[in-house]
Design a protein around this nucleic acid. Structure first.
Lengths: 348, 348
DNA sequence: TCGGTTTAACGAAACGTTTCGACAGGTCCC
DNA sequence: GGGACCTGTCGAAACGTTTCGTTAAACCGA
C-alpha cells in the first residue's frame, strides 16, 4: 500500500492533524521543528498525497470535465474538436487543472450521462459543440453543476461561447458575390448541430438579401466530413446547371469538395470557386489553399475554461460571449469563368 | 447537497449497507421488495452514486491517465498525438474507461509529475511518446503503477508499444534509392525524442549499407514542426550541392518542406522528391500528396489502452510489441531530374 | 501575579461509499 | 429435533484526507 498521512503520524508519534497542518502549511500553525520532521519523514516514506481522499472532504478535484459532441468513434479526428480541446488544455495547464475526457457519451442517455458527469470526479464541465437536440447541457446547468458550452449558438440558461456564424457566412458569401458569383452552392454540415443549421440559414438569408433565388438542388449535405464533402461536391458538379462557387460549412467538407474536383478534372478556382469555414490548419495546405472563415476556436476553448474555473470559484457566471470571425482569402476562390468564357459552365 | 446513500437509508429506515446491496445487486442479497423500494427512492431523490467515494474504498476509478509528451503549449495540435489519443479514446469508450489528460506536464519535474499521476484519480497511465531523457515512465513502473508507453522504441522495464522505425526508414529510403536518388537529405525531428533519433540513425545506417557517403550538411533539424521543416528545407535547398530527395522524420516537417519549395519556386517531385513519415491525414491533402510511411498510430493507442486495462485487472503485463510499417507512395517522389537534365540541380 | 492572548498539538467527526462480522429467522435433511 | 445452511438485514470499520473543538503550555502586558 502507498504510504499515507497516518504512516507519517505513526512514525513520528504525532496526530494526523498535525501532519496535515505541516504538509499543507495550514490552516493551523505547527512549530518549525515539527514541520521539518514531517517533511523529512514524508520524503523518506515516499509519501504522495491522495487527491481522491482530499477531494472527498474539500469537494474540489481540480479537474474539469470535457464532454465532446456525441459523434461516435474517432471524435478526436475532428479538427474542430482538436482546436477547441487544445485551447482548453493550454489554459487548463496554466490554471493547474487536469482534464477528464468523457469517452462514453455516445452510448448514454441524458440520465446516464449526468451520472457520469456528476459522480464527483470533476468540479465542472465544458461541453464542446453539443447537439442542440441533447438536453444534457441544460439539465447539468439546472442541477447547479458549473458548466459552460462551446457551441454554435448561445444555449438557453447556460454560459456559452459561440462565434458569430451569421457574420462568417455573410463574409464568405459577400466575397463570392463581389467576385461576381451568382450561382452559389452550399455544402451543409450535420443539421442536428447548431453551427451547421445556422450556417445554412445564413446562406439562405444572404441569397434572400441579394435577391438571388434559392435553389434546393444547390444545397448538398456533407455531414461535416471529408468524404461527405466529396460526395456532395460530386452531386453539385453533376447538376445540369452547376453553381460557379460553393461555400462549405466547414473546412473538412471543403477539402472533400476539392478532392472531388480532382476526381472530376475540374479546375479550382478557374471553373469553380470553393470556400470553407473554420480555418483549420489543413485548409492552408490543400491545393489550392482554401479561402475560409477564421473563427478563434482555440481562444474559445481558453476563455471557456477560464470562465468555468471562475464559476467553480464561486464567481457569478457571465451569460454568454459571441466571438467575431474574419475572412481569409486564399487561392481557392476567384471570378467565375463565365465572365471570360460565356456559357462554358453549362457543359455537362 | 447532493443526495447520498444515507439519505435513501434514512427515508426508508434501512441501514446504508442494505441500500448499497440493493443498488449494486450485491455482494449480499436483498429481498425483491427492499430492492424495489430502494430503487424507487433513489429515483425520487435524484440519487447519483459518488464515484470518488466509491473509488476510495475499492481503489478503482475506472479512469485512465494520459500523459502527453512534454512539448509545452499546443500539445493537441500535434497530429501524432491526435491520432494516438483518438485510438486511446475509442478503445477507452468501449471498455468503459474515462480518460484523464494531465495538462501540467511541462512545468513539473519527475517527482511532481509522479505525485500527479499517483494521486489516486487514475488506475493506470498511458505515456505517449515520452522523452527518453525523462525518467518518469520508468519511475512510475517501478512504483507498481500500471502503465504503458507508446514510444519510439521499447522502454526498459515498461510495457511499451512502438513501431519498427528502422523498417519504415528503410522502406522510404529504399524507395528513393530505387528511383535513382543518391543525394538524399534528411530533415530530423526533436532529437530528444526516440522516434527522431532512431529515424536519423536509420538514415545513417541506410547510407552506410548502400555505401553512400554521409554528408553532415544533408541533415537539417526541423523539430517535428511545420515551420521547422520549412526552415530546414530552405537550408538544404540553399546548399551549393543540393540533395535530389529529402526524407523527413515526420509528415508535418515534410509539409513544411513542401511549403518551402513553394517559397523557392522549386518543383516537387520534378526538382526534388520529398517524403514524410507517419501518414497523417494532411499528408494526403498537401500538393503534391506525400509519399510517406504509414504507422498504425491509432491502433497503437487502442492496443495500449486494452493492455493497460488488462494490467489493471491484474493480468501479467506483456513486455512490448512492435508494429510494422507500410510505405505509401504518392506523388511527391519521383526519379531525380538529373537523369533527364544533367547537372541542372547544381544551380543556386 | 493574573487574566488574556497566542502557539502547538491532539482527538474526533466528516466526506460517501463498500464490505465484513454478526445475528435472527427460516428451510432442509437425516 | 438438532445441526448445517441459506437469506436478509444491521452496525461498524475502513479508505485518506481536512478541519473543528478542545486543551495545555507558553507568552505578554499591566
Amino acid at each position: 500500500m502507498a504510504t499515507s498521512i497516518k504512516d507519517i503520524a505513526n512514525k513520528l508519534n504525532m496526530s494526523v492533524s498535525t501532519v496535515s497542518y505541516a504538509l499543507n502549511g495550514g490552516p493551523r500553525s505547527v512549530s518549525l521543528e515539527t514541520k521539518n520532521q514531517v517533511l523529512a519523514a514524508a520524503r523518506d516514506l515516499g509519501y504522495r498525497p491522495n487527491r481522491v481522499a482530499r477531494s472527498m472532504v474539500t469537494g474540489r478535484s481540480y479537474t474539469i470535465g470535457v464532454a465532446p459532441p456525441e459523434i461516435g468513434d474517432d471524435v478526436f479526428l475532428s479538427p474542430y474538436l482538436q482546436l477547441a480541446i487544445n485551447g482548453v488544455a493550454n489554459e487548463a495547464g496554466r490554471l493547474h487543472q487536469d482534464m477528464l475526457v468523457f469517452t462514453r457519451y455516445r452510448e448514454t442517455e441524458h440520465e446516464e450521462m449526468l451520472s457520469i458527469i456528476l459522480d464527483g470526479r470533476v468540479d465542472g464541465v465544458i461541453f464542446i459543440a453539443p447537439h442542440f437536440t441533447a438536453k444534457t447541457v441544460e439539465l447539468a446547468a439546472a442541477l447547479q453543476l458549473p458548466c459552460v458550452a462551446i457551441s454554435g449558438a448561445p444555449v438557453e440558461g447556460v454560459t456559452s461561447f459561440s462565434i458569430n456564424n451569421e457574420q462568417g457566412m455573410t463574409q464568405v458569401l459577400e466575397h463570392l458575390y463581389e467576385l461576381g458569383h451568382r450561382r452559389i452552392g452550399h455544402i451543409a454540415g450535420r443539421l442536428d448541430m447548431q453551427d451547421a443549421l445556422i450556417r445554412l440559414q445564413g446562406y439562405q438569408a444572404f441569397l434572400h438579401a441579394r435577391k438571388i433565388p434559392y435553389r434546393d438542388e444547390f444545397v448538398a449535405k456533407g455531414q461535416f466530413l471529408i468524404e461527405g464533402g466529396r460526395r456532395a461536391m460530386h452531386e453539385l458538379m453533376n447538376l445540369p446547371i452547376r453553381p460557379t462557387a460553393v461555400s462549405c460549412a466547414n473546412d473538412e467538407m471543403a477539402i472533400g469538395a476539392i478532392l472531388a474536383t480532382y476526381d472530376l478534372g475540374i479546375k479550382v478556382p478557374e471553373e469553380v470557386s470553393v470556400a470553407g469555414f473554420d480555418s483549420t490548419p489543413s485548409s492552408a495546405h490543400i491545393h489550392p489553399p482554401l479561402t475560409t472563415v477564421r473563427q478563434p476556436i482555440g481562444e474559445l476553448g481558453e476563455v471557456a475554461l477560464r470562465t468555468l474555473v471562475d464559476m467553480i470559484e464561486g464567481n457569478e457566471p457571465q451569460e454568454k460571449k459571441v466571438f467575431e470571425t474574419d475572412l481569409i482569402v486564399r487561392a481557392s476562390t476567384n471570378h467565375p469563368m463565365e465572365e471570360i468564357h460565356e456559357g462554358s459552365l453549362y457543359s455537362h
